[in-house]
Design a protein around this nucleic acid. Structure first.
Lengths: 208, 208
DNA sequence: CTTAAAAAATGAACTCATTCAATCTTTTTC
DNA sequence: GAAAAAGATTGAATGAGTTCATTTTTTAAG
């Protein structure tokens, strides 16, 4: 009842997560050994595995924290978006992209995405997938908002359009992290080009 | 000059690829050990690594063969597509999806996709990425063809539209293989819904 | 306070993927 | 056709992730 056990658990969990995140940042994912993470967190290797199913899992956990921040920042844009469809979409998406490399390297993104695909049933992969779904919803909600405002034509399936725009940007982001040489600006330009036809076509003519 | 060495090399390569593909199908990717693959192919473990960089690599190789078949089948559709935009897109995409699970399980797709993300510089990952690009091009070419025929409005950026449609279907396929419970029909229906707004909007009014 | 039961932590042992120095085979040279 | 060079094969050794029987710590019961 005292909760000593619960407190220790939360504390260990925090230490492990912080140890892993810092090590990943310092030496990269591959070179960070479980033994090292455990040592820095002051727990045993076995204990690490009581908290995380495997090495990929803890990376997905750190990436998930990052995605949550992006979601939060996106809220502000969706609440008060620019008036034209193209600009609104672009501002939201560019914000996603800008956030992406602040704390995480391309290598970390690659490993996290690969892990969440390979083990879709581990708890943190589920969480990552869920966050992806919330990002997708955010884009759909933006389109719906623009529709209510009259910037997007009535009768358009805003959810379908939002999903397509999100899936496109997500796939482009995947290509971006796969290509170590690609610049953030290139990614943004390409996605902007892809969004233009859709944005123009769904917009009410006079606001185009 | 005799080419004995080249012949032996090709033969060993074929044996390794067949051994791996059959083992993956029989026991799944994770349970198929390199040692087992090597034994079935009648080579040593070391030789396996002379032909493939790592375990993921050979899976991506088997998947690549599959994608090439899909590409080939897609050609026929692009050469002589249905007349309406929506139908043409849907026929091509459904064909991609129908082919996908003939030889490969969802687990194999997951691992292949994860590997191609995690090690984008290995030769077979490059090849997988390149095939993905060709699939993307195929969709774009279909849209261009429809535009030439007059089914798609002139002035539309056909390449951008094709890329967006492809990235969307690719991401949806990824969600599909991540969810062991999702049926192929569900995938098709969802993508069809997503494609509708885009297809309708880019179509010339009277052909809609 | 003592004891029993439950929960967690531990690290040595285990499993594989991967490497590499030694060996063998094929090709080229003279 | 013998010898040297080049190209491939081999499998034992390596190393990192993961497991699990044992031990320790915490909680609950009497």
């Amino acid at each position: 009842m005292t909760g000593l056990r619960a407190k220790q658990k939360a504390d260990r969990n925090r230490r492990i997560l912080e140890a892993a995140a810092s090590l990943f940042r310092e030496v990269g994912y591959d070179s960070a050994r479980i033994e090292d993470i455990a040592e820095r967190a002051e727990v045993s290797v076995g204990t690490f595995y009581n908290y995380y199913e495997n090495k990929g899992d803890i990376l997905v956990a750190t990436v998930s924290m990052e995605v949550e921040e992006v979601l939060e920042a996106g809220k502000a844009i969706v609440e008060n978006p620019p008036s034209t469809t193209l600009e609104a979409l672009q501002v939201l998406i560019d914000q996603y992209f800008d956030h992406s490399l602040v704390y995480l390297s391309k290598e970390m993104w690659r490993t996290a995405m690969a892990t969440s695909i390979q083990q879709p049933d581990s708890p943190f992969s589920r969480r990552y997938t869920e966050l992806d779904g919330r990002l997708c919803d955010q884009v759909s909600i933006l389109v719906q908002k623009l529709q209510l405002r009259g910037a997007v034509m009535p009768g358009i399936d805003a959810v379908a359009v939002g999903q397509m725009a999100f899936n496109n940007l997500n796939m482009m982001f995947l290509e971006f992290v796969k290509d170590e040489a690609m610049a953030l600006e290139t990614l943004k330009e390409r996605v902007a080009r892809q969004n233009r036809p859709l944005a123009v076509l769904i917009s009410t003519p006079r606001m185009q």
